[in-house]
Computed example of a mutant assay.
Amino acid sequence: MSQDVILPIPAPISDRLGTADADQGAIYFEKNCTGCHLFEPELGDSTGPNLSNVVGRDKASRPFPNGYSKTLLGLEGNWTYEDLNTFLSGPAITTPGTRMDSRGAPDETDRANLIAYLRTLSDDPVPLP
């Protein structure tokens, strides 16, 4: 008999984004994400895909020479604030099969700040809810 697996889903982040600190998110990104991700479009990719314009972009749609996992390729739709919230709360836990083995941003404040920062990397930022 198989057991049902219930994946963790963090509390909604939308209400926190209006007061999130993108500058703190930039510091978090620099300390925790730049080992694998770049954010300047002209720099291309690193171990992970470039994150410029990630908010609102179709999931696993940016050309990425290292290839996306089957898990990410199977995700539909655009990266919404809530999708990023879930994914970044613990990529390996919330999205089993992803190649991102980072712990993500388990702290809700750090995650809100990081998402606010990722929003600033968009040429045409998705409006806050």
Score class of each variant (00 low, 15 high):
T98H: 08
P8A: 11
T34F: 03
Q3C: 06
W79C: 10
S2F: 11
Y81L: 01
R111A: 02
A11R: 12
I93G: 03
P63W: 03
L38M: 09
A92Q: 13
L121F: 01
D45F: 00
D110F: 02
G90D: 06
K70N: 09
P127V: 02
P41D: 05
P125C: 01
D58V: 13
T80M: 03
F87E: 09
T98L: 04
G74S: 15
R119L: 01
A26P: 03
C33T: 02
N32R: 14
M100D: 08
Y28Q: 07
T120Q: 05
T95F: 07
P10W: 01
S89P: 07
E76I: 14
E82P: 06
I115C: 06
A22G: 08
I9A: 09
G18H: 14
T95L: 15
P12T: 10
R103E: 13
G97S: 05
L84H: 04
A22V: 11
T86K: 10
F29W: 00
Y81R: 00
G48W: 00
K70C: 05
E40H: 14
H37D: 11
A22W: 10
A22Y: 11
H37Q: 10
D124I: 04
K70V: 07
T98E: 04
L17G: 07
D83M: 12
Y81F: 15
R103K: 10
P96C: 05
P106K: 14
R62G: 01
P49C: 01
R99G: 13
A112Q: 11
T86S: 09
A11P: 03
P49F: 00
V5P: 06
